[in-house]
């Protein structure tokens, strides 16, 4: 899985830019499967990407268009998908989003994620095996009625509050 350490993120969005570019040949954050939030008011930045949560909320697809690959990544079948947005609604952190009639979610680039290569800060790392998949049950409850952008914001803000506690201890 892709691990994110938001305390190291500078908000540069290189991960987001290369994700879109290498997968589509274009730049546009809606085409990226990893999306960076910049929370200017609290100095927190962080990418949101599918972390293959324990619960697998997205697998609720009524058309069975979603499945799990050998790396535990989400795989979408474009032929089965009807763009009903059930997966988008189900993901508690906004890591799945539909744009221009396609579902965008991280598929780990087949095991060599481009975003990890692009990050010069060590904020994104990749572990092929032995990863402990996190539970997103807390976020599922809290972000129930939000859109993907709001979910990502909530998720990063929440994680950021932990980072800020450390900052305050040391610097304030």
């Amino acid at each position: 899985m892709i691990e994110v350490d938001i305390s190291k993120c500078t908000g540069c969005k290189r991960c987001e830019a290369v994700c879109a570019f290498f997968r589509t040949g274009k730049i546009n954050n809606r085409l990226a499967r990893i999306k960076v939030m910049n929370l200017y008011e609290i100095g927190i930045d962080g990418p949101v990407v599918c972390n293959q949560c324990k619960e697998r909320y997205c697998m609720c697809c009524p058309d069975d268009a979603l499945s799990m690959g050998s790396l535990s990544q989400v795989i979408i079948s474009p032929t089965l998908c009807t763009l009903c947005a059930a997966c988008e609604e189900a993901c508690p952190i906004g890591a799945i989003e539909i744009f221009d009639d396609l579902v965008y979610v991280c598929d780990l680039c087949g095991g060599r994620p481009k975003c990890v290569e692009a990050c010069t800060e060590g904020a994104i790392t990749y572990e092929a095996e032995g990863a402990e998949y996190p539970s997103l049950a807390f976020f599922k409850k809290e972000t129930n009625k939000m859109n993907p952008s709001q979910k990502r914001h909530f998720y990063i803000k929440r994680q950021g509050s932990e980072v800020r506690k450390k900052w305050s201890k040391r610097y304030a």
Binding site: S7, T10, C12, K13, R14, G43, Y171
Partner: peptide, 22 residues
Amino acid sequence: KHKVKNKACFNCNLHCSRYYMV
């Protein structure tokens, strides 16, 4: 004394800006 982390502009790999607390 005060820098808590680096900050960057869009798609920059220098990250020369900084966030601070005082």
